[in-house]
């Protein structure tokens, strides 16, 4: 089993938290993992990414080589396109359809979606809408949408959410659980 996952988005949108949850679950099922992320200058509202590698064998590099990713999981559509060179031949793009517009020259959404639609395997959903209903953040919905592709069971991810969010109280845990289930259901 090997899953190379690019998680991407915009600084501050919580994409690194998603990486943490998957990592926590992966460690519990005794997978090897490496997860690299970006801090500092490159984080401030700019494009951010995290490389997450899971495997049942030891993993060498902390970053995924180009053309090898199994999943690109993006919190917004243009960022999904930015990391396409990493996508492997059988790879899947899972992205939020809602753009995050914090730059003046953000391209027309139609053009972005036209490019997304050229990707062979893709899952596109409005994570903002679903997240609002659950009172959670869109990143958790996206995590749910990715579950069928992760090779880690929903139950293990739910355990990880408990493990990471229990100290923040029951309401936060439940909102996050609702959100990943909503993402999972929406794309089943």
């Amino acid at each position: 089993m090997k899953k190379d996952i690019i998680l991407c988005g915009v600084g501050g949108d919580g994409i690194v938290s998603v990486a943490k949850i998957i990592s926590d679950a992966a460690l519990n099922v005794n997978l090897y993992l490496k997860q690299s992320e970006i801090h500092g200058m490159s984080q401030r509202g700019g494009s951010v990414f995290s490389h997450l590698r899971l495997s049942d064998k030891p993993i060498f590099a902390d970053v995924i080589p180009e053309g090898r990713a199994d999943i690109i999981l993006s919190s917004e559509p243009m960022e999904a396109l930015r990391y396409l060179p990493f996508l492997g031949p059988e790879g899947c793009v899972i992205t939020n359809s809602e753009p995050f517009v914090n730059i003046a020259n953000y391209p027309e959404l139609d053009k972005i979606m036209a490019e997304i639609n050229k990707v062979g395997k893709r899952v596109v959903l409005n994570a903002n809408e679903l997240a609002k209903k659950c009172n959670a953040r869109p990143n958790m919905v996206l995590l749910g949408a990715a579950v069928p592709y992760l090779g880690i069971g929903m139950d293990k991810l739910e355990e990880a959410i408990h493990h990471i969010f229990d100290r923040k109280g029951e309401a936060v845990v439940n909102a996050n659980l609702d959100a990943i289930r909503a993402g999972f259901e929406a794309t089943k």
């Binding site: 509202g45 080589p65 180009e66 972005i112």
Partner: peptide, 28 residues
């Protein structure tokens, strides 16, 4: 390193032209 060893370097799809830079910026 693959290139230096004359090995095949896999390559995903190119970044579509429509993608613009999103440089870091001061927070709102």
């Amino acid at each position: 390193i693959a290139k230096a060893l004359h090995r095949e370097v896999p390559q995903g799809p190119a970044v579509p032209e429509v993608v613009t830079n999103r440089p870091p910026a001061l927070c709102q």
